[in-house]
Structures are given as C-alpha cells and as structure tokens.
Design a protein around this nucleic acid. Sequence first.
DNA 1: TATAGACCTGACGCA
DNA 2: CGGACCAGGTCTATG
Length: 284
Amino acid sequence: MIISSNHYVNLEATLFSGQCFRWISDPPWFYGVISNNLIKIREHPKGIEFFSTPTSETLLKDKIAEYFNLDENLDDIYSCINSDSRINTSIHLFQGMRILTQDPWECLISFICSSASNIKKIRRNIDSLTQYFGNKLYLDQQILNTFPTIQNIVEIDEDILRNLGLGYRSKYIKSTAQTILNQKIKIRTWENLNYQEGLDQLVYFKGIGDKIANCILLFSLNKKEAFPVDRWIEQILRNYYLTKSENKSLKTTASLRLWGMNHFGKYAGYANHYLFHYFRTQNK
DNA sequence: TATAGACCTGACGCA
DNA sequence: CGGACCAGGTCTATG
C-alpha cells in the first residue's frame, strides 16, 4: 500500500540516525516492527510504500502515517530551524529525515539501554531482549520479534537481563517496569501531557535523567521542542554556539538543554537531531 | 548546589 | 594480544 506524503521521506536517514534501534536495511526495502506487526517499507515517488503482517495494510495505514509523522510539514520546520550554516548543511545532506512517533514503552526501555553505550551495542541489547521474550514475526526472509511487554519484564529476574548483556541498566529496566505496574501508571495517557509534565513523569523513574527523558519526549511523545543533550550535542553547542561566558556558566545537562530550547524554538528537537546526525556522520 | 566515582560490557586505537 | 580507555548517562556519596 502507498501512503502519500507532502515531502520526500528519507528512510535511510530517518531509521538509522539513532532515534530507533531495530530496523533492518535490505535496499530498497526496510524491515521493522510497529504495533506488533512486521512492516516492510520503501520510498515511493508519492511518499512511502509498505506491506504488513499479520494486520492488513488497510488497518495499519494510519498507524504507519503517524509513526513517520507524514502529515508534519517539513518545509515549515526547516524554515523555523534553518538559522545557521551547520543546520543548513545538515538539512541539505539529510533532506527528508523525520522525527518518528514510536511506542513510548519501547522507546523508554531502548533509551535506558542507551546510557554510556553505543548504537551497535544498543541494537544488540534490544535485539536480545526481543529474542528472549518476543513472538516471532515472518515476512520474506526476515524474522523479527515483538517487543516485550511491561508484564514480561516484571516477571523475570534481573539476572536474566544481565545475562542478556544489559549490564547495570538491568536494574533500571526492572524497577521502571515494576513502578509502572505497581502504581498503575497509564503510559497511554502520556501523550496528553505537556512537555514539562512529561519530563517530570519520566525523570521520576530510576535510570532516566534529563537526556534520556528528552529522547523519549522527542521520539515517542511528539514533543518537538525537546532537546536531548548528550556528549555530541554538548560539544557542538560549546564549540559552535555558546559564548565564552555561556560556556562557563552553563554546566549541567539541563541548563544546556534550556539554552537549546530557547535558541532553536518550538522545533528545537529537529534542529538537535539534524545537528547530531550531521556531526556523527562527519567523524566517520 | 556542585563534583567525583561507580556502574556493565565490548569495540577500538594503540604500545 | 591484553589492558586502559571510552561510549548517545545516571545515581550516590561526599564536601
């Protein structure tokens, strides 16, 4: 099935810029899991083309459009954030790269896994998790697994997570699932929270600080003003954006984040992600 | 309020 | 080839 988009969709940049961790590339197709369905997708002159199983394409169409934020106007966003040469270069290099709307639970666990790690290892960690708990989905030659549920995580021992290679993050994953269950926290309602309410809710969990909370807000809760400050973004800000006195006075992740949100405005998260992907790929 | 260490693990640039 | 170092952070214990 084809879903039309008002702007080119750059699947490679969108799916492999570090906002999600379990898509597989088999040009021109990409395989991934959305809402417990195996999705096969490629770029199309009108937008994107996809197949799905077990749910039919017709029933999943809206979900896929939401996942890729296809109704968001990229040209408007570009004109909002394109205020300097670095952003401009990145927009030209990765034209059509979109911020996704992922499942918040999967996004939350994925980014707990990301702390002091690297993309290769994060991918392996999450793949181990899905292989241990998930149900297999088949399409073409691909086998992918559904993502573990909150209940799945609550029921197993922390040692199993450690044996899967998740390290010290294991206890954070366990305690987060436990807290959600015990306190009957409804993740489904998070999309109705504003930025600050969402941030407060997320940093309440052990293992989620300012950076990871902002990743979850940006990549799954549709908060485009969110501005995750990691090592890369901090270096970029300090080297290219901050004055000498700002470099001295802004020390914490949160203070740098506030600077970024103020400087780049309501689409700060887009500016953040384009800068992040640009600088990461330059150094390779 | 601020700043060091600790925390798992494995890929990587180098004596 | 092995050990220190580091990676898309966060928590905790101290001054």
